[in-house]
Simulated assay, not measured.
Amino acid sequence: MSGILPIAFAAYPILLSGVGFAWLLTFPFRSWANWFVRLLACGNIIVFAFMTGPWAFTSYYLRYVVLWLFAVAAVFSYFRARRNSQHFSAGDNRLPMPSILVLLPFLVLNALAIGSNYPAGKTAELAFPLRSGTYYVLQGGNSRITNPFHALSNSKLAVDIVKLNSLGNRAHGIGPRGLGAYEIFGEKLYSPCRGVVFKVRADLPDNPPGHPDTGQPEGNYVVLKCAEADVFMAHLKRGSIKVAEGEVVALGQQLAEIGNSGNTSEPHLHIDAKKDGVEQAIRFNGQSLSINSVVIRK
């Protein structure tokens, strides 16, 4: 089952976009109102896939190709409707209920996805903890739409980060079996704030991809007590942690390397923050991150 998940994640946004394209291009239009509402409904399906689909399982850049193809499909459907407009009947000028029933929920979902970039309340202001590369948010934000797995846990505002290669994928392939095929594996982790190391675990093994350790969900981790918040960074590489409990660390000091320990199917950095036991959204260098956010570090 675990080997199927990367394929499912890769296929999901492509199939959802395909539904939007097919619905726009294959159904007959009986009025301009029918065409316009159908265009809005299909457009919102495409936008939802664009904003919330896990595109890094194929290519982050593919999402922009899908937007371009939708623009082409919209123009094509317009000329198709125009060619058939002489057959439009005044009696068919009613708003099409199937299109409206699809449009309304996708409008709500897209509003939630956009809102996930603007967390309410206090936020923890941290420095981005990775360097030299293009980094991608697998899930994050304050919405169940953009942060679905964390929404089921006690870290609803956590962020999961991977690294992209030149093709916009987080690995060499959809679901490679070797840890070294994942761009972020072994990546150096730096302190996002000045603080004191509160807790460390460093001895758990790195799991083969697709074989999470559900008994030790955090894996290897470092917890920093900083003025901004208590910062928790998990799924670190075995034997890579360079700090000890009670040690004072400077902003930007190397802490560890990214691994695949704990309840994780593939290498990534999990990071969350709490202040006085209350979870806070994180802003990295003044920027809030949600799913499909990209951070370029040179």
Rank of each mutant, 00 (worst) to 15 (best):
F29G: 01
R30L: 10
R30F: 10
S31I: 15
S31R: 15
S31A: 15
A33E: 00
A33F: 03
A33V: 06
N34V: 00
W35S: 08
F36S: 15
F36R: 14
L39P: 08
L39A: 15
A41R: 00
G43K: 01
G43D: 02
G43F: 00
N44K: 04
I45E: 01
F48Y: 10
F48T: 05
A49H: 02
F50G: 03
G53M: 07
P54W: 05
A56E: 07
A56S: 15
A56H: 08
A56N: 10
A56V: 15
F57M: 01
T58P: 00
T58C: 03
T58W: 01
S59T: 11
Y60Q: 02
Y60K: 02
R63A: 03
Y64K: 05
Y64F: 12
Y64S: 07
V65G: 13
V66E: 00
V66Q: 02
V66M: 09
L67R: 07
W68T: 14
L69A: 13
F70H: 06
A71V: 13
A71G: 14
V72M: 11
A73T: 04
A74W: 04
V75L: 15
F76Y: 09
F76I: 09
Y78N: 04
F79I: 15
R82M: 08
R83P: 05
R83S: 12
N84G: 06
N84Q: 09
S85C: 13
S85Y: 06
Q86V: 09
H87W: 03
F88R: 11
F88S: 09
S89F: 02
G91D: 09
D92S: 12
N93V: 12
R94Q: 10
R94W: 08
L95W: 11
L95D: 06
M97I: 02
P98D: 11
